[in-house]
Design a protein around this nucleic acid. Sequence first.
DNA 1: CGCGCTCATGCAACTCAGTTGCAATTGATA
DNA 2: TATCAATTGCAACTGAGTTGCATGAGCGCG
Lengths: 146, 146
Amino acid sequence: MASRLSPASDWATRIHAIGARVTPARLAVLGLLERAEQALSHREIEEALSSGFDRVTLYRVLDWLVESGLGHRVTDAERVFRFSIASPANAAHGEHAHFRCEACGKVFCLDDVPVPTAPLPAGFSGKAVEYCITGQCARCDHKDHS
Amino acid sequence: MASRLSPASDWATRIHAIGARVTPARLAVLGLLERAEQALSHREIEEALSSGFDRVTLYRVLDWLVESGLGHRVTDAERVFRFSIASPANAAHGEHAHFRCEACGKVFCLDDVPVPTAPLPAGFSGKAVEYCITGQCARCDHKDHS
DNA sequence: CGCGCTCATGCAACTCAGTTGCAATTGATA
DNA sequence: TATCAATTGCAACTGAGTTGCATGAGCGCG
């Protein structure tokens, strides 16, 4: 898979396939998230799409995105939600690691990092696992050394 | 309630040792958190301590608690902060696993569960790790089976 | 192509967690 | 006990996210 295929047109198809309506707001958000290399907050999305969707519309698109399984939500350390496209890998085993850069504040989805499993105390049954590493991302780490 | 050593008096000593002032609010919060078996939210603390500390005072006590290293903060899925006492184990390696029960919403500190480490992509340097498992706690799991 | 049902959008007002500024109080030290 | 900085309480504020309701836009159907 060199390029992730799928120009905007593909989203319309996928949206349609799940029985939902294809709207400008949804296409815009999906396109933006697909281009983004990290999980974006509502605020960031609002600013990037300054072309004028309503705050609330974006919230609803993002909710829909998570509900429909196309997207994926994390709560970051600053207690704001961040959204990303659910990659095939994510969708498959339902969980993947995140990395939060202390320097630039960005949250990356580490699709290639396996989520380790830990043994639980007796009586506890785990379903989902959240695994988030905090530190410096490649870009900020590089800046430090220069 | 088999008592983890340290009655209230011990807190006064520890607070004093780190060069901070011993106040009723701090003692109340520390005592409450010590008794609690899960991380508590500001709201829960406020209700438990209905004896009338100001909202803001509690926020400040909690901030102080984390800053001073006596306490420990997690952001839960509902995007609210939860606080717990930093156990010696926590303090030692600085990180430990959490468990969030979907049924009762409580957050437990799993001091005995080792936090697994995962390999990072090149250029990324990790500092802290957050490891949170979601599922059913022993109590709620038990209820299901009865 | 146009009709109409339903869902999506925009607007305004709201909730709730957490923060800030400032004056009054209190803890610890001398 | 007097002193002074740290802590508290109050009030007002911020910013993320939610809700209700009227309007507008998809899209399936004839």
